[in-house]
């Protein structure tokens, strides 16, 4: 399997990249780390006529903290996120999630922006962005747009990004005091895409959730910020409460069928994850026994 022929350009600035995208429109594909794009091209699942390789745009690389905001450039590689003390301090959920992205050799090339723009519903990072209240920053012919993560992911491999736009960075509010997080995914093998996963961010005060954001992935055509969290905030969490939350979760899920799992299995596993997440974040082993049905 060899990729179809294509023309190639390596822009030297964001402006330059945007010009190329404006000229070539949807015939062009942006090449970032290439870890999703290249397999698809090698398999000839897609055959873009024009590749815009943004790999040289150093301005899109890097992690900075300014005030309450952690900004991560789109070209920041998974390996860089994993090594970053800023991410470890201010968005440890993202660090934990990134450790589950594929394998070391892939993480050395794959980028945060590439993963988000690719928007695989089974991917870890889009769900993290939702849990972390990220803002996705894109640049296009009409300037910059700031899109809340919750609005960015619109379907399987679909985002609010237009073919003329480039994802340039994400902004995350730095983790608040007393915040805690939970990340887990059920994958058949280490590094595989998840059957179901959960990236959660919370604030726990005196055994209560004062805030809880549950970012589920591989449960539908896009990551889901579960409303079920609302059932668990500012109330004592009892097994009955958790069961209620699980029922709410079940209603808001729209899982897909694939070779790994039926929708019923995904619903079930999502509920198991919910129970494990709540039990872990509240340090309440009593909530873990048995999956709430």
């Amino acid at each position: 399997m060899k990729a179809s022929a294509f023309a190639y350009a390596r822009p030297t600035s964001v402006a330059n990249a945007l010009e190329l995208l404006a000229t070539h429109g949807d015939k062009a594909k942006v090449l970032s780390g290439g870890q999703s794009l290249m397999p698809a091209m090698n398999l000839r699942l897609i055959s873009p006529e024009f590749i815009v390789d943004i790999g040289e745009l150093a301005e899109l690389r890097g992690i900075v903290v300014k005030g309450d905001v952690l900004t991560i450039g789109a070209l920041t590689r998974h390996a860089d996120v994993l090594k970053s003390p800023e991410v470890a301090a201010h968005a440890p959920l993202l660090r934990d999630a990134t450790a589950h992205v594929a394998h070391p050799a892939i993480r050395n090339r794959g980028t945060l922006g590439g993963s988000l723009a690719h928007a695989d519903p089974a991917s870890e990072l889009p769900a993290c962005m939702m849990a972390l209240e990220a803002t996705i920053i894109v640049c296009g012919p009409r300037g910059e747009r700031r899109i809340p993560a919750q609005e960015f992911f619109t379907g399987i491999y679909e985002t609010g990004l237009s073919p003329q736009e480039l994802l340039v960075a994400v902004e995350l509010p730095v983790a608040r005091k007393r915040s805690s997080h939970f990340f887990h995914e059920f994958a058949r093998r280490h590094g595989d895409y998840a059957i179901v996963g959960l990236a959660a961010q919370s604030i726990v005060v005196d055994g209560y959730f004062t805030d809880l954001r549950l970012g589920f992935f591989a449960v539908g055509d896009r990551p889901l910020l579960a409303n079920a969290a609302g059932e668990l905030v500012n109330v004592p969490v009892t097994p009955e409460r958790l069961t209620k939350a699980a029922a709410v979760l079940s209603d808001e899920l729209d899982p897909q069928e694939d070779q790994q799992a039926t929708p019923a299995m995904r619903r079930h596993l999502a509920k198991v994850l919910l129970s494990r997440c709540v039990s872990t974040l509240l340090s309440r082993p009593d909530l873990r026994s048995g999956a709430p049905e």
Partner: peptide, 9 residues
């Protein structure tokens, strides 16, 4: 750094 050479041009 290690990379997959089939996924780089």
């Amino acid at each position: 750094e290690i990379v997959r050479s089939c996924l780089i041009l």
